[in-house]
Design a protein around this nucleic acid. Structure first.
Lengths: 328, 328
DNA sequence: TACACTGCAGAGAGCGCTCTCTCGCACCCG
DNA sequence: CGGGTGCGAGAGAGCGCTCTCTGCAGTGTA
């Protein structure tokens, strides 16, 4: 072992490896030389056992949602997480939460394998981490809707504010009949973006009529198209449209065009997400960008701080930006 | 501890938890009752230290390629892996291999943290695992091109054979001037799919001229479009086209159509991958499907067998299938 | 000169398991 | 009835670290 090679005790080696200050410089050098000579790699497992730290962070992905891999938002989030963790000793543990056996996930999380967890796409039905209580530091991506977890730490974009600012942009363009296609109302993104639209429209002093210019979709392109059909039937004089995500916005644009509306001349459209295809639409879609990588970075940073016992605000908000393209 | 609660020794608890046979049934019951009563979760870390197993499998994703998350092929591969691992005690460790610090990856892998590794999208420049030699069981997704690793275990689709069969389908349709848009020649998929085309064309008894009907792209849609322009210029009488992936096929179809060629009447087109957008093209793209989930499952199974010390063939081939749609 | 104080390194006891070794206890056979 | 056989359970030694506790110099103070 290194201790023998360097002629010191194992405790001293440990001190050097872990960067303790109270070791004489020449001894540090000796030990480091020995480490290099022997190509010594500390055994992480033994260290964990002794130090009662795992140096592991779990990234929990609900199985049903492992389609999130295909979600253009998810990849950069993971990269952001990985980037932050890359500068630390933490290791990322991908946990595909099997819904068939939520017990397994829970046990794993409380088995001391993990110092903390990142929950990446939770839906209201998932209760596997509820049992954990506050035993394990956890950070959610997006405001947790699950009862009993609503007060947990999370990172989020300010959907309300972002939506409001998008709608204000439409209003600033002189549009007076600004409708919205809202998303699923069981998800924060669906709820909050609708609220943002409401706030802006209400503040604009538009009449009651405008506040009714809302139709609902489920975030898919087709649902956006259908919702737009309905909206157009009710409000042929629509001149602005805020859509809760880009997928639905694509559907909306299709329908608007097929009804002879020019975008943005007749109807200005703003989406949300800045999906990869947004710039390829005709006209290119003006939309709200969520900086996904920073989102992931923030999640990791908050969790690390939490594990370190620091006091972190429950909610971390990542600012969005309005990407102006052709559609508004 | 459980031992006291059940009135047996710790060794016996260990035996029960690990399913050893040589424990009397009533004692097993006693211990299990105690385990349930105390909600005992074995400490995985201590177990690892003692048993010199980690029960962890690393999934290595090169950082530059962490865009693979966005790759529609990658998500189901991970799901397949997770599915197989879900039935075992293994845990998936996502390792974003930082290219800036390949040392970190290597050290981690040899630090006893991991029983084996899955390498998911390796490119020829990546050498971080070469140093590992055969110390760690590893399974590659796709034939390893990296010098020194070419003989390692891997799971692959038979690109040569799949391509050959696709081209034979074109030939069977009565096409006689079947060209190809080949992919990057530093990747197995690029090399092998070209070989498959060559084999089929050569076997068809077509003349020298046909064997020259190849242009190269880099797997992107635009490169596919450009390659098709070149090919069309050289061979206006082209009546069949095999494209090494769907992205490039989409580009090719765009160009063919803009040159007034009807698909499939004038030129029949076959792609490769069966990307999600393939059925949405006009006409829907006939393409070679790779069963990605099975791919992941196979990778996990091979690795587990390898770790168990079983004798596994170096190469596991996942069969592909030709999905016939409108374009050929 | 005696004593307290500080800084640094070693000793050694764990961390919570696994696993080998050993022993006890039936059971069976000659 | 004694000793061999075999199975089941306990004892106890690690696994490779960390971390507290202790001891030993060396320095400062009265």
């Amino acid at each position: 072992m290194v201790a023998a090679e360097a002629g010191v005790s194992r405790a001293t080696v440990s001190r050097v490896v872990n960067g303790s200050t109270s070791v004489a410089p020449e001894i540090i050098a000796q030990v480091q030389a020995a480490v290099a000579r022997l190509d010594y790699v500390p055994n992480r497992v033994a260290r964990s056992l002794a130090s009662r730290r795992a140096d592991v962070i779990a990234l929990i992905v609900p199985e049903s949602a492992s389609t999130v891999f295909a979600d253009p938002f998810f990849a950069p989030v993971v990269r952001g997480v990985a980037r932050v963790l890359g500068d630390t000793d933490y290791t990322l543990n991908l946990l595909i939460a099997s819904e068939s056996r939520p017990e397994k996930t829970r046990r794993y999380l409380q088995g001391g394998n993990v110092d903390g967890a990142l929950v990446v796409s939770h839906h209201a039905e998932d209760h596997s981490y509820v049992g954990l209580g506050s035993a394990l530091p956890m950070v959610f991506g997006g405001r947790p809707l699950i009862p009993g977890l609503t007060d947990r730490h999370h990172v989020d974009v300010d959907n309300v504010d972002s939506a409001r600012r998008a709608v204000e942009h439409l209003l600033g363009l002189g549009r007076s009949r600004v409708g919205t296609i809202a998303g699923r109302q069981d998800m924060p993104a669906g709820l909050d973006r609708l609220d943002g639209w409401r706030e802006a429209v209400a503040a604009s002093g538009a009449g009651r009529a405008s506040v009714d210019l809302v139709e609902f979709g489920d975030f898919t392109q087709d649902s956006g198209a259908e919702a737009t059909e309905r909206l157009l039937a009710r409000a042929p004089d629509l001149d602005g449209l805020f859509v809760a995500n880009d997928q639905m916005a694509a559907g909306a644009m299709r329908v608007l065009t097929s009804h002879g509306r020019r975008i943005p001349d007749d109807v200005a459209v703003i989406g949300f997400d800045d999906d990869t295809f947004a710039p390829t639409l005709t006209p290119p879609l003006t939309t709200v960008r969520q900086p996904a990588m920073e989102f992931g970075e923030a999640m990791a940073e908050v969790l690390i701080a939490l594990i370190a016992g620091e006091d972190v605000p429950r909610r971390t908000v990542i600012p969005t930006s309005l990407v102006r393209r052709g559609s508004a």
